[in-house]
Design a protein around this nucleic acid. Sequence first.
RNA 1: UCCCGAGUAGCUCAGUCGGUAGAGCAGCUGACUGUUAAUCAGCGGGUCGGGGGUUCGAGUCCCUCCUCGGGAGCCA
Length: 465
Amino acid sequence: MSRIHSVESALRGRVAVGQQVTVRGWLRSKRDSKAGISFLTVHDGSCFDAIQAVVPASLANYESELLLLSTGCAVVVSGELVPSQGKGQAVEIQASAVEVVGWVDDPETYPIAKKRHSFEYLRSQAHLRPRTNTIGAITRVRSTLANAIHSYFHSRGFNWINTPIITGSDCEGAGELFRVSTLDFANLPRTAEGAVDFSQDFFGGESFLTVSGQLEVESYCLAMSKVYTFGPTFRAENSNTSRHLAEFWMVEPEVAFADLNDDADLAEDLLKHLFTRVLEEREDDMAFFQQHIDPTVMARLRAVTDSRFERMDYGQAVAILRDCGEPFEFPVAWGLDLASEHERYLSERHVGRPVVVMNYPKDIKAFYMRLNDDGETVAAMDVLAPGIGEIIGGSQREERLDVLDSRMDEHLRRELWWYRDLRRYGTVPHAGFGLGFERLLNYVTGMENVRDAIPFPRTPGHASF
RNA sequence: UCCCGAGUAGCUCAGUCGGUAGAGCAGCUGACUGUUAAUCAGCGGGUCGGGGGUUCGAGUCCCUCCUCGGGAGCCA
């Protein structure tokens, strides 16, 4: 009796040689031999490798179907798992039956040819690109990373908080928001003053897609002690770079009774844990990235897992940049934000691995970040990664109501009354950060564009698929 | 949004000084072969991103628009 197996379980020794197996998947390639056999390479996404099936010409549908197969066809192959007579694989299937489940209409125009494609082209074929080596590998690593994030936090007593996707606040402090509305745009209700009357909108007021779950997750932090969010986030910024998406995923842990150093410790420990898991669990995919995408990825991940992150104050970073003699395009001075070129110099040239920059001037950071005793800086940190830039941004939060109030305007204080309440009822020091999931994935795989790290990228002008 | 670069066959690209379109891969046909992105021979395949201009003549020069990529800003 022939049992159904994934390609992975058939290849990885979980099936004994000599057993009958059935695998189901899609053809990567087909080679015919006039010796009276054809070679099918069948892929099902379960692992990096495809399995080879040797099909004898004696099968009933060999002439009528097997010879017509082409890349992309869906097949069910049954046969005996045998040691391979050829080079390139240890085992293969000696097929006794091949059922063609789905044909490729027109082999000439099948968008995923048996060759290298540009990532740019593959983005235009986002529905078929998971059939490629690279996107398939990214997909498995992404899934492993997501699972590792949940298991890391779960095993340490963090609660996963599903903060809302739709928010009524337009002042979360990070970027432009997408409006959520059911109003009839062709016939907008108006107030007496002529403004759009959002009181008639679905939620009884203006509403938007969230740009961060942080403010909401803080309220659960001040009850559950250790919490995190992991979900989609939306920014309506017109930014067109390899590091930005309009819809992306973010991990945001938040810890009570914690300060900025605890926050940096958590960021470092989390990244080390995640990289270790990927190296253990996705050896096959990482070997591919190392060989075909970026020959430095493995060394880069090991540099993170094997050594402590460099930490420096913003003031030190400014001094280093000022004295390094590098001809920067943008000025370096205390009080100015660091430009990409500065962050890159620090992480890539000065340190050579991730660096945590802490305690930035208060005027260039968000209102909720805790004011330090010097009155000039806030307890903020950025983790800067070589080749990626800012991979984590976090801070200790301002837990003192009077200081928080001094950093908010009247509109903000009214809108965020509930956020202020958290400082009135049992406030405690707490800290957290945001980790961009697609940026993390690029760092792990060596891929250069976050549009290739998410299945269906949304960017300005693009929401197809 | 700004600055660069690109757009030519299904895909990746070449195309010189302005003279009427090329290669590799893919596809099809055949040969050969326990093959490995197989190999060899042949065949089919083009609105040169759109529009306008200069010219006897434009893929090539000029203007303009569109699209894509890279960088910057913003950030994760």
